[in-house]
Nucleic acid binder design. Sequence first.
DNA 1: AGGGAATATTCCTGTCAAGGAATATTTAAG
DNA 2: CTTAAATATTCCTTGACAGGAATATTCCCT
Lengths: 114, 114
Amino acid sequence: MSGKNPGMDMTTLSALAEPNRMDIVELLRDGPLTVGEIADRLRLRQPQASKHLKVLSDNGILEVRAEANRRIYKLRPEPFQALDSWVKSFRRVMEDRFDNLEDYLRELQNKEQS
Amino acid sequence: MSGKNPGMDMTTLSALAEPNRMDIVELLRDGPLTVGEIADRLRLRQPQASKHLKVLSDNGILEVRAEANRRIYKLRPEPFQALDSWVKSFRRVMEDRFDNLEDYLRELQNKEQS
DNA sequence: AGGGAATATTCCTGTCAAGGAATATTTAAG
DNA sequence: CTTAAATATTCCTTGACAGGAATATTCCCT
């Protein structure tokens, strides 16, 4: 074993960490949309829209449904569920209480081994 | 105004979307640590550790406390709370129901125009 | 004051990803 | 079969960013 990052899927995060893709996700939150519609509303050129959509689908954030000429993209629930449970695992941090205690213990250790 | 991304702070995401920084965050989840300890446990060279720590602090993910020679980094709750409430705003997506509806309408449209 | 630990910073280099423009592909319609 | 719309793909260029190595800074200790 090699101490790899356990919890969260990195690719999900890096996919979302790009303004246009984040915009796409935000846009798709109230329903599936066509490439053209997406490009329109976000003022993107079609090729860039397609590229970003590809990244998002490749990472499982979106899924496509072909409908004749059009391709309809929509959000997939899984990544968000994953993200949700990952963040929840930080409740100790979010609620604070923990550092005062730990800090104190560490202080002690340091002082006595010097 | 220009339709900027409203909900989530992008910089938080991009800061986390890097393996070593994610590792640091995971490591710090059970307590504050020193630069040296972090570098050690993650097998990072000290300068890279410092750089990543800088990025994380600059984005408000970590906070530093100087203690003589050492600098002790620890997680800040705010970004996680923010991330949490952002993800929660996707509950409609996470619970599905919404696309079935839309899908169904689309299906109808198609069938009757064939 | 001087030496050594702990940490930060700088400079350099290579890699990768995003945008632009052009082009390929698929599909519907006449 | 030709054309046009919708989408995907390719090629190119540029900028951002991470790692490496060296160096600067800060602080403790004697």
